[in-house]
Design a protein around this nucleic acid. Sequence first.
DNA 1: TGTCTATTGTCTCACTTTATGACAATAATT
DNA 2: AATTATTGTCATAAAGTGAGACAATAGACA
Lengths: 232, 232
Amino acid sequence: MKGSDNTNFIPNLSYDCVIFGFNGKTLKILILEYQNTGFFALPGGFIRKNQSLKEAVDQGVEERTGLKNVFLDQFQVFGSLDRSDSFAMRKILEANNKDIEENKWMMNRFITVGHYALINYEDVDPKPDHLSDSIGWYAIEDVPRLMMDHNDIVDKALEVLRNNISEKIIGMNLLPQKFTMKQLQQVFEAILDQKLRRTSFQRKMLSLDILERHEKLFEGKAHKAPYLYSFT
Amino acid sequence: MKGSDNTNFIPNLSYDCVIFGFNGKTLKILILEYQNTGFFALPGGFIRKNQSLKEAVDQGVEERTGLKNVFLDQFQVFGSLDRSDSFAMRKILEANNKDIEENKWMMNRFITVGHYALINYEDVDPKPDHLSDSIGWYAIEDVPRLMMDHNDIVDKALEVLRNNISEKIIGMNLLPQKFTMKQLQQVFEAILDQKLRRTSFQRKMLSLDILERHEKLFEGKAHKAPYLYSFT
DNA sequence: TGTCTATTGTCTCACTTTATGACAATAATT
DNA sequence: AATTATTGTCATAAAGTGAGACAATAGACA
């Protein structure tokens, strides 16, 4: 939880971010843990009064990952009355020796703008500690119990990712610039949580006319060397 | 603009609503005009501190249309710094003899949650005046210049409607309970702004298994009488 | 060095889905 | 009773997808 000047932020409004990464095998998300509380949560924060929503979210993502210009999309606003948890917020403030009175506004009711981000796992700064929280990758099937309604936010983000996103955006943001057809297929299999047919998948991707084929991959791997592709 | 107790509302946060209706020929949206200002705007409002976002929006739509249980979907949050217009807001308050000092919070910067609604045009209460604003239907190609970024909000709502929505939701909410295949096709043609092939469209709709076929339509129309359908 | 083996790129065939046109049935109009 | 425009349905062609076959290949391994 960053910032402490209670006049600088828009009250009652926050953002939360489901940051997806792909490690080559499974889809993962970034979860942070508030020290000395046992609380897990999504990376999130507040919006300054003289700051656009996008600026606030970009800044929060950069602070957590070290990445700029990350693909980000709002997918839902969570605005129910019962989603806030002033008790947990108080414990977090106490555990970090923050002045309760001064940060009382944080214990109010909050409406949050849910975002998801797609990033290249390899690009992330591996030293994840930030101020009072530690942060780490969790496979989507191993996400722990999170604060407030953050598990719902994750579920919804995944649903939107599965249904609404174009092939190009998924691949461009979750993979390195050059990749093999197999890697591309594995991203889709991880997101959709199902096996795909190799030949059909390849034919489909090539027919979409979004891939550029490069020379061979020499990697120490055995067997026939696959082509490398990038997005056009 | 309803309400005047400046302690009851969440500051800096509003909602706006693109309410779509279909009159049998074209897609229309509800636009309100603030009296004595020449300002056109989307129906919108603020969220009370003890009210969920959904309650606030439902209430605002009901006040404007007389309809309960309207299909509503958030589609984007508009959070740029330059979208607010304190000058216009002041003129609206003045034109309605509201106390400027008491309503000063309304001239602050606002982040707004964009929604769209799909309603049956015939169901709408035809006496549209409400407090200080008059309200009326505009074909989407005839929408006037709106306040602030409301034209952008309309454009985005239409884009989302065209891309993301299931056949059933579109038809169920924009049409009367019983309708002909032709009417259903006209809804889609109005939304997508393109002609569709009659036979393909009919086969597609029937194959989706979302329609129930009823008896004949006796209407004074000439030619072969079409079936009536409703959604299952 | 030569053989083995798993992976890759491509092709084929069957099957499904979609596009497009044809045609008969029909209900008011004449 | 014939006309006419519209509707429901079918026929055929075109495009897309599922599932398997097969040769090419590059490291592994004897």
